[in-house]
């Protein structure tokens, strides 16, 4: 297997390092760089595919074919669009807070990549198996708020500002039920480590069956966290023109776009890990199972996006605080009692 081969390769390289007396930190830096490169390539390739998939799904839902001209089935459409976006003029509005404006897309993008540090792709294929995996993911997810606030504030545009404030309110309210739903899983598995959670599911059943309520809460909250319809209020096209990224164009806008899909992918893969047993599954290689399960959630999110209208901002708050939070709390208590008994 590929995994074993990589592991043996790593061991032999390590042995060479030890034999020649080369400092081991060089090896550590080298592997870290390779891992980052691997994760980046994985994300970029997937996002390219996801954007194409979204357009195809939206197209077929709406009785139209979606992209067809660029490449076979329009597969190269995203690549062509990316090229177009990169070649566009880099516009920074005259009234903008320059540095904040420039930094905002990066602050949004980096955490969406960092989540992948702890996601287990397959048995033992994980950049870093942190013992506080879930806590780490939850901490990174909150980074979206400052980035959108920065984008909205620095644009010097009223629509952007409203989008940014909406996003702050929305993300903070949905963080709480999201983490509570994740905690249900943690209580069952008895660990914050993602590989332990998968192992626990291999011992019993998928946590989807043990935590159905937790799953629903997680999924709704995760949709809200990744700003997708029906919770796409921060950019709400028909209300706020384009919300926080009204003033963004070209390359900077494309980074926001990239982040959106990277977040969607991260959310889906985390859902697969927490509730569908991650990479574990019969017959097929573990990595394939991981991809199938992730894309199942991706499809679900897209299907929802092209069906539902947008929820209103006060209703969003009501749903978060008055419905999801109590439900998640009750779920956590019931799970706790169940585990103790």
């Amino acid at each position: 297997m590929l995994v074993d081969w990589v592991a043996s390769l790593y061991q032999s390289v390590q042995a060479t390092f030890v034999a020649h007396g080369w400092p081991l930190w060089v090896l550590a830096v080298l592997t870290a760089v390779l891992k980052v490169a691997g994760v980046l390539v994985w994300i970029l390739l997937n996002v390219l595919f996801l954007i194409w998939l979204e357009r195809k799904i939206s197209g077929h839902v709406q009785n139209r074919p979606g992209p067809v001209y660029t490449g076979r089935f329009g597969l190269l459409q995203t690549l062509a669009d990316a090229l177009k976006v990169l070649l566009k003029e880099d516009v920074i509005p005259a009234g903008a807070d320059r540095w904040v404006f420039v930094l905002a897309p990066l602050v949004a993008f980096v955490p969406s990549v960092m989540i992948w540090v702890v996601i287990p792709f397959s048995r033992g294929v994980q950049a870093q198996d942190l013992n506080i995996g879930i806590l780490y993911v939850a901490a990174l997810a909150s980074f979206t708020v400052p980035s959108l606030l920065m984008a909205g504030w620095s644009s010097d545009n009223k629509w952007s500002l409203m989008g940014a404030l909406r996003s702050a309110a929305q993300l903070i309210s949905y963080e709480v039920p999201l983490i509570l739903a994740e905690l249900g899983v943690v209580v069952l598995a008895g660990s914050l480590r993602l590989s332990d959670i998968i192992a626990a599911q291999q011992r019993s059943v998928w946590f989807l069956f043990l935590q159905p309520v937790g799953f629903v809460v997680y999924f709704i909250a995760a949709l809200a966290e990744s700003n997708r319809t029906p919770f796409d209020l921060p950019e709400a096209e028909s209300e706020l023109v384009a919300g926080f990224n009204t003033e963004y164009s070209g390359f900077r806008w494309s980074i926001f776009f990239l982040t959106e899909y990277a977040n969607l992918l991260g959310m889906a893969s985390l859902a697969a890990t927490l509730f569908l047993g991650g990479w574990s599954g019969p017959f097929l290689p573990p990595f394939v199972w991981f991809v199938i399960k992730t894309y199942f959630f991706v499809f679900l999110a897209m299907w929802i996006r092209w069906t539902l209208p947008r929820i209103r901002v006060d209703q969003l708050m009501d749903l978060g605080w008055k419905f999801l939070l109590p439900v998640a709390l009750v779920n956590l208590v019931v799970t706790g009692v169940f585990v103790v008994l």
Partner: peptide, 21 residues
């Protein structure tokens, strides 16, 4: 109510497209 809507979109997704190229 939400499930009904999803049924409609799923059904339409599997239908042939109506676009004239």
């Amino acid at each position: 109510g939400i499930a009904k809507g999803h049924k409609v979109t799923l059904k339409e997704m599997l239908r042939p497209t109506v676009t004239v190229m």
